[in-house]
Design a protein around this nucleic acid. Structure first.
Length: 578
RNA sequence: CGGAGCGUAGCUCAGCCUGGCUAGAGCACUUGGUUUGGGACCAAGACGUCGCCGGUUCGAAUCCGGCCGCUCCGACCA
């Protein structure tokens, strides 16, 4: 491509809306243009990169035994009602774009495709002999995100690869899931990511287990925790951890109400009462689908609301508003405790709350706290579970290691769905005994457009993007200098066409600009190999070769340069799965 | 949705508080000249429904009201 005819001007200044480096660089280098909130034009350079990312993903999906198809983005309401997700996705969460067509039928733009694929496969699968099956597509998804942000990281329209597996039983699902898990690792490796795969919350998609593929970046929206000894890793919203416990060998004391005026929050409280943090109890009041719930955790812990919501199986979980707390408990915020809550309040407590004696908790009276509280005597044992937020420094739940934390961008997420959709939508088969069984499903997503943004977030310098050869928009960037001299421009033109004949993708900067501007643009755009033809090199009959990752350049013959470029391309292609 | 902010040239922004006549700057763009291997310089030019609608006023980018759009902080997720 001749840069003089290329669409996508570079900008010197950072557009003010860009909050992350990747977003800013993509705007400045002409990879994206914003059309409205969370909606972007994929400009020619990005389009090429997305095509390459898609191709890598496609190759690994096919190698894992999946078959490609393409489903409609426009979907009928009926299938979503059948799966039971219509209300959640529209009225409750509002994540789905839905509207009426001219005949008055309600339709929506697909945020995901479990319903459609299940509808297709239930017509396909009749017998255990029809299984297993695995299908994937690379397609535009629509999600009316509550808050789109960071450019392509969280967009309302984005490109996703989604795959769906169908098996006869759990063991079959294990095999399919494992094949996808490996394929996801290969995709991440081929792309050249610094990443990690972690256990995750299946969330709205549902199912029994899931893993997220996290690209490590400080601007990531997620916090991940991983063990410094074993392979345990999990999204913080899903992670469990081990914390220190203390011997409970003191005598059981009588419960006592203590005045501690204006003293709230665990730390001031433990100083005031001269108690260790772990003896304090945080009791937080929530409204779960309109029902009052009190959650207790140890004073040195925080609550993980995802765990609480999962335990309660509720659709919405909100902190109780201060006015409501006062109305229901009679106390200001900060004095809530498990004793004396309104009738019918569900009390749940973190496991680490359980084996303590003579602990503290709020008295549900402004300025008062109870000490020497004991389960069984002062209040019944509540329901216990894992509700605390795991944090860096906690112990690993699998070994005796410690958890470290990092920020990550979720580029892939794989789920064991089980029978959630096949039961709801009647996707069944007859087994060898002639018995009807629901198909066991899995689903597997990769954010194609997000990968581009995540890669830049992880690989850039102060001058611009640094693409690897496998997903760069072009393999080489040919820079022509001194083009006003006929012999130089002739030579540059010749090299441009030789490179093309050799099957090397080349962006040829044939613009009449100064060297500095061309080099700056080249650094910004980030094509991995730069070839420079100028008066200087033309005289030697050679060309300057430079890698985007290196400071130094070398002067080579065209043949040598081509050989090097081909070696680099070949090296990246050797990672492809057969 | 709750909280905060912004909307003036392609981009970054000044002007608004304290209303005033042809609305500014830098970058980008056009033309000419000098330059020419890391975002040059000089000169001349082109480019604006000041987000939209309404109100106040002799007069509105500026004050007031409504609407729209965008961004940030929280819940969502590939």
């Amino acid at each position: 491509m001749r840069q003089s005819r290329h669409i996508g001007k570079t900008l010197r200044e950072t557009p003010k809306d860009a909050q992350t480096i990747a977003h800013s660089l993509m705007l400045r280098a002409g990879y994206i243009q914003q059309l409205s909130a969370g909606v972007y034009v994929y400009m020619p350079l990005l389009h090429r990169t997305l095509t390459r990312i898609s191709q890598i993903v496609r190759e690994e999906m096919v190698a894992a035994g999946a078959e490609e198809l393409l489903m409609p983005a426009l979907q009928p309401k009926e299938l979503w009602e059948e799966s039971g997700r219509w209300e959640r996705y529209t009225a409750i969460d509002g994540i789905m774009f839905a509207f009426k067509d001219r005949r008055g039928s309600t339709v929506c733009l697909g945020p995901t495709h479990e319903e459609i694929i299940t509808d297709i496969l239930r017509q396909e699968i009749k017998s255990y002999k029809d299984l297993p099956k695995c299908a994937f597509q690379i397609q535009t998804k629509f999600r009316d995100e509550i808050r789109p942000r960071f450019g392509l990281i969280r967009a309302r329209e984005f490109i996703m690869k989604d795959a769906y597996s169908f098996d006869v039983d759990e063991q079959g699902l294990e095999v399919s899931y494992e094949a996808m898990r490996k394929a996801y690792h290969r995709v991440c490796q081929r792309l050249g990511f610094k990443y990690c795969a972690v256990e995750a919350d299946p969330g709205a998609i549902g199912g029994s287990g899931s893993q997220e593929f996290m690209v490590l970046a400080d601007t990531g929206e997620d916090t991940i925790l991983f063990c410094n000894k074993c392979d345990y890793g999990a999204n913080q919203e899903w992670a469990s951890s081990v914390i220190e416990t203390f011997p409970q060998n003191e005598e059981i004391k009588p419960i006592q109400e203590v005045l501690g005026e204006g003293i709230i929050k665990a730390e001031p409280l433990c100083k005031f009462l001269n108690l260790p943090m772990w003896k304090i109890t945080k009791t937080i009041l929530y409204e779960a689908d309109g029902k009052l719930v009190a959650v207790m955790v140890r004073g040195d812990c925080d609550i993980n609301e995802v765990k609480v919501a999962n335990y309660l199986k509720c659709k919405s979980l909100r902190l109780l508003a201060p006015e409501k707390i006062k109305q229901l408990t009679g106390a200001e915020v900060g004095y809530a405790g498990p004793i004396g809550l309104p009738e019918g309040t569900l009390i749940i407590a973190d496991n680490y709350v359980k084996d303590r004696i003579n602990f503290e908790c709020g008295a549900n009276k402004t300025n008062y706290h109870n000490i020497n509280v004991n389960f069984g005597r002062d209040l019944p044992y509540p329901e216990f579970g894992d509700f605390k937020l795991a944090e860096a420094g906690d112990g690993c739940p699998k070994c005796n290691g410690k958890l470290d934390s990092a920020r990550g961008i979720e580029v892939g997420h794989i789920f064991k769905l089980g029978t959630k959709y096949s039961e709801a939508m009647n996707c069944r088969y007859l087994d060898a005994e002639g018995k009807s069984r629901p198909v066991i499903m899995g689903c597997y997503g990769i954010g194609i457009s997000r990968i581009a943004a995540a890669y830049i977030e992880q690989n850039h310098d102060d001058k611009g993007i640094i693409w690897p050869i496998q997903i760069a928009p072009y393999h080489t960037h040919l820079i022509g200098l001194n083009l006003e001299e006929k012999n130089v421009s002739n030579e540059a033109e010749r090299i441009y066409s030789v490179l093309q004949q050799e099957g090397i993708d080349v962006l040829y900067d044939d613009r009449q600009l100064r060297a500095g501007e061309k080099f700056s643009d080249a650094d910004l755009i980030g094509i991995p190999i730069r070839l420079t033809m100028s008066k200087r090199t033309a005289e030697q009959g050679k060309i300057e070769f430079k890698l985007r990752t290196e400071k130094k350049s070398e002067v080579l013959t065209l043949q040598e340069a081509i050989a090097k470029i081909k070696a680099i391309i070949k090296e990246s292609e050797s990672k492809k799965s057969k």
